[in-house]
């Protein structure tokens, strides 16, 4: 009987803990994204509004300026209040920018792996479907966080520092709303973008599909309004839905449309988003698999 000397030596070094393994995908995806100059420029543009907000808060607390403005008869407290409306507007502006960030970066995340039969390479290793989705979603969450709740909370902290802790306590709701509102938007947007990316191979088409679904809903809602004389069509207008939730979180008036408020019950907005998340997870579970299907 032939006896073979065992010369193979398996890798015996340290391994990344399973709980953090998804971050490998995040790291490489972010590095890939920031290779694009256009993306880097857009990311920078996304931080302009927070910088302007910092400037506004600074002006609001500049004693010399306030004195000069008071001399000129301008009461800046009335003209530019730092309150729930200020943070609500911040949320809306940065939320939309987060949408465009996801539009830019989301469609390529899964489609590229599927188009190049790359999924088996990930999933034939000790790396689960959940970890894969977490890794891809992590990319979008990090990018969106960088333009939504993180600068928002910094602004809130700055204002609290300058105005005093009493202001912070009175406006705690804005801070909580910033965090919850951002995370809801980021998770919904991220999962849906990944689901689209998993089903639409060509990146631009995936981008168009995202645009259509987020901004085309208003046309559907309008058709329902014309035919049935009801506002209920707007529950499928995702842009309106998220604005309705933000308005509720920040305790600001319901969003206006065609010059009138659309006061649909808040639960309907939450149900819409919950359904969208469920559909996205289902679509992802169908498509993320460790084998290639030849039809």
């Amino acid at each position: 009987m032939a006896v073979y000397q065992r010369s193979f030596e398996p890798y015996a070094g340290p391994l990344t803990q399973p709980a953090w393994r998804f971050l490998v995908l995040v790291r490489y995806a972010l590095r890939d994204l920031f290779k694009s100059k256009l993306f880097t420029v857009f990311m920078t543009v996304c931080l302009i509004y927070p910088l302007l907000s910092v400037f506004a808060i600074y002006l609001r607390h500049n004693a010399d300026l306030l004195a000069n403005l008071a001399t000129a008869g301008i009461e800046i407290e009335e003209w530019m209040p730092i309150d729930e409306t200020f943070f609500g507007v911040f949320m809306r502006v940065q939320g939309m920018l987060a949408f465009f960030l996801v539009l830019f970066s989301g469609p390529r995340l899964v489609s590229r792996d599927i188009a190049n039969n790359g999924l088996p390479l990930y999933l034939c290793r000790p790396f689960s479907k959940t970890q894969y989705v977490a890794g891809k979603l992590g990319v979008l969450l990090i990018l969106s966080s960088a333009v939504t709740w993180i600068p928002g909370l910094l602004l809130w902290a700055l204002q609290t520092g300058l105005e005093g802790s009493a202001w912070g306590a009175a406006n705690l709701r804005s801070a909580v709303a910033l965090v919850i509102g951002s995370w809801v938007w980021m998770v919904v947007l991220g999962l849906f973008a990944l689901a689209i990316s998993a089903w639409v191979k060509w990146r631009p088409l995936a981008g168009f599909a995202l645009l259509l679904i987020f901004f085309g809903g208003v046309f559907f809602a309008r058709a329902v309004e014309i035919l049935f004389n009801t506002n209920w069509g707007y529950v499928l207008d995702l842009h309106h839905t998220i604005r309705r939730i933000w308005a509720d979180l920040f305790a600001t008036p319901a969003p206006f449309f065609f010059g009138r408020p659309l006061d649909l019950p808040i639960w309907s907005a939450w149900v819409t988003l919950a359904l969208l998340v469920a559909v996205s997870l289902y679509l992802l579970s169908r498509r993320i698999r460790a084998y290639e299907v030849i039809s």
Binding site: F208, L212, G216, F219, A223, I226
Partner: peptide, 16 residues
């Protein structure tokens, strides 16, 4: 009613 719907049809369905 159709005319108004048709406008939306052109702007969304035909366009996309």
């Amino acid at each position: 009613v159709f005319t108004v719907l048709f406008q939306l049809y052109i702007r969304v369905s035909v366009f996309f």
